[in-house]
């Protein structure tokens, strides 16, 4: 597969942090963990309070005008020339690869492309730009990994996230049987096609349970919302956690 991720850049002193709307509302601790992982490396993290959503829900649901309106708002919020780090493969994919499509016929396309070129998914940034070395301080644990489709394909950053997990000596990663298969979240898909979405989430949870892992990790909180919700509904006690939170927890 071609490397769809961003080129390495020299280590910056400051980065922007795009928290994503799902993390903002439901997983703020994961968002904070990502911030701390960056700060720990001596990076100054800027969190524009003006930021909101990347616009993907509207972009995927047939409302490009509304998606552009929200996207332009992010362009304003992240106006300076710092790299933008995003703790989500899906939102990063939207900001990096979908914005240029969304704005293809718009007068501000060049500004958009410059914005998009500054986007990094968190694990990608940690490995490629910061060359982070992790020291595992946790107890031995068995975890499994869910690749969000956009992290896997559009952003192609799953290898970076797994490299980071690989640095944790006492973490055993057991891979899912169908790791490359979607969990059925798909944003508005989960409520527009609820039956199919539920069937997919159900199968994903079965796959997770088969690994015997104590936790399931991912780069994407949308998927985690879906997976955790299904695990919870079936009263299965496997926490679904953002990888940044997990890494922070084990290296403190």
């Amino acid at each position: 597969m071609t490397d769809a991720s961003s080129p390495p850049i020299p280590r910056p002193s400051k980065v922007y942090y795009f928290g994503t709307c799902v993390i903002d509302a439901c997983f703020p601790q994961a968002g904070l963990a990502g911030i701390e992982l960056l700060q720990r490396e001596g990076i100054q993290v800027i969190f524009p309070q003006e930021q909101s959503c990347c616009g993907q829900p509207a972009h995927n649901s047939g409302f490009p005008e509304e998606a552009r309106r929200v996207a332009r708002h992010q362009l304003k919020a992240f106006a300076k020339d710092y790299p933008i780090v995003v703790p989500s493969g899906s939102c990063a994919g939207m900001l990096k690869h979908q914005y240029p499509h969304l704005f293809a016929h718009e007068p501000d396309i060049e500004e958009v492309c410059r914005f998009s070129s500054r986007i990094y998914e968190l694990s990608e940034f940690m490995v490629k730009v910061l060359q982070v070395r992790l020291e595992d301080r946790g107890e031995p644990v068995k975890v499994t990994w869910h690749s969000s489709c956009h992290a896997l394909r559009e952003m192609a950053i799953v290898p970076y996230a797994k490299m980071l997990l690989g640095q944790l000596e006492r973490v055993e990663l057991v891979e899912l049987q169908n790791e490359r298969e979607c969990c059925g979240f798909g944003g508005t898909f989960s409520v527009k096609q609820p039956a199919i979405s539920a069937a997919m989430a159900h199968d994903k949870v079965n796959d997770i349970m088969q690994t015997g892992a104590a936790r399931v990790l991912s780069t994407d909180c949308g998927c985690l919302l879906n997976i955790a919700g299904t695990l919870g509904y079936r009263q299965l006690n496997v926490p679904a956690q953002h990888f940044a939170e997990f890494i922070l927890e084990r290296t403190q």
Partner: peptide, 28 residues
């Protein structure tokens, strides 16, 4: 639709926006 087969999403008492502000993160 969501909760037919899932527990409802749990909204955090404080958003990341609020937490970032509380921690004094640069707002640029």
């Amino acid at each position: 639709e969501w909760t037919r087969t899932r527990t409802p999403p749990l909204f955090a008492p404080k958003s990341l926006h609020q937490l970032a502000q509380e921690r004094g993160l640069d707002n640029d």
